[in-house]
């Protein structure tokens, strides 16, 4: 057996294995230790350490970069569940720094301002696993070809509107179904048309799924939204601004109480995503929501899902 086989540290199989351990879980955006603890106690399977949640990045504008190291370290110290952090698209040095810091996953994210408009990070060069966003199957397979160990829909982050996440998940699942029923001879033309690696197309044709976990993100704001994404085929759900932007109008203690209950309710809805009785109970526990922006009312240049390709 080769050294690679007997060790496999940082190998693609191990990275996908790490991503698989998050299946059926909820990954929550947090900006400080208190929020991280609320997320962990609610039953989150991981947290995403951020300086600003997407709703604030959207509102405040400017260049959005990797979070400050101090913020990520504070969150790493606060919880035992895995901690993820975002790097800009194509910014491989931010990724090198995050790997050195010991984050458990890196999200090469369109929520931050892209650093390279042509190329994404060569994720095979890293031991730490990456998650990347997609709007359709071709985009998902390009990211997997670059070494992503987990895929999520892009959705439209920071809006509280789930419509784009639904669009992207339906696009991915629809393309997977179509590809399964193709004649093998049609696969190369499909690879050309989708701009996706042939080996990845072949995998989907033969297995009826992508080779890494397929999660949902972008605009999930309620227990019902989270269960909707699960029933559409997501294997786990990222909740960004949905929890800690909820109840912004409430006084501090009431807001924290409402956010804690909401975080727990979203976890319940994801675990029991096909159980209507449990979903009703989860939805009952939501007493505050983020206000949100309807994606249909937004100008094209305001949308961030178009970042990356």
């Amino acid at each position: 057996m080769s050294g690679e086989k007997t060790n496999g540290k940082g190998s693609f199989e191990v990275k996908v294995g790490l991503a698989d351990m998050l299946r059926g879980g909820v990954i929550m955006d947090v900006t400080n230790a208190d929020q991280a603890k609320i997320a962990e106690d609610a039953g989150a399977a991981a947290v995403m350490a951020l300086e600003r949640v997407p709703a604030d990045i959207r509102k405040e504008g400017g260049v959005a970069r990797m979070a400050s190291i101090r913020v990520i370290e504070e969150i790493q110290k606060a919880v035992e569940i895995p901690v993820m952090a975002k790097a800009r698209i194509g910014h491989f040095v931010e990724a090198q720094i995050l790997e050195e810091l010991g984050v458990d996953f890196i999200d090469e994210s369109e929520v931050l301002t892209p650093a390279d408009e042509a190329n994404h990070i060569d994720k095979h060069q890293f031991k730490v696993p990456f998650v990347c966003g997609c709007r359709n199957l071709g985009e998902a397979l390009r990211r997997i070809g670059e070494g992503a160990a987990m895929i999520r829909t892009k959705g439209e982050a920071g809006t509280g509107d789930v419509v784009e996440a639904v669009r992207h998940m339906r696009a991915v699942q629809g393309d997977i179904r179509r590809m399964q029923h193709m004649d093998r001879a049609e696969l190369m033309a499909t690879a050309k048309e989708m701009g996706a690696p042939y080996e990845q197309i072949l995998y989907v044709h033969e297995n009826g799924k992508i080779p890494v976990p397929n999660f949902a993100a972008g605009g999930v704001a309620t227990p019902a939204d989270a269960a909707l994404m699960m029933q559409l085929g997501a294997e786990s759900v990222f909740v960004g601004s949905g929890i800690f932007k909820a109840g912004a109008e409430l006084p501090d203690d009431e807001r924290i109480k409402a956010q804690t209950a909401l975080a727990k309710a979203i976890v319940r809805a994801v675990t029991h995503y096909r159980d209507a009785g449990e979903l009703l109970a989860a939805q009952k526990d939501q007493n505050a929501a983020m206000v949100g922006i309807s994606v249909a009312s937004m100008a094209v240049e305001e949308k961030i899902a178009g970042r990356g390709w």
Partner: peptide
Amino acid sequence: GRQVDSFIAPIDIDGLDEPFEAVFIR
């Protein structure tokens, strides 16, 4: 240790003739 220290190794299991490729993740 940390999750980057996950690994794959062959192990001998009582009752199995050939080694088994064991995946250790955190």
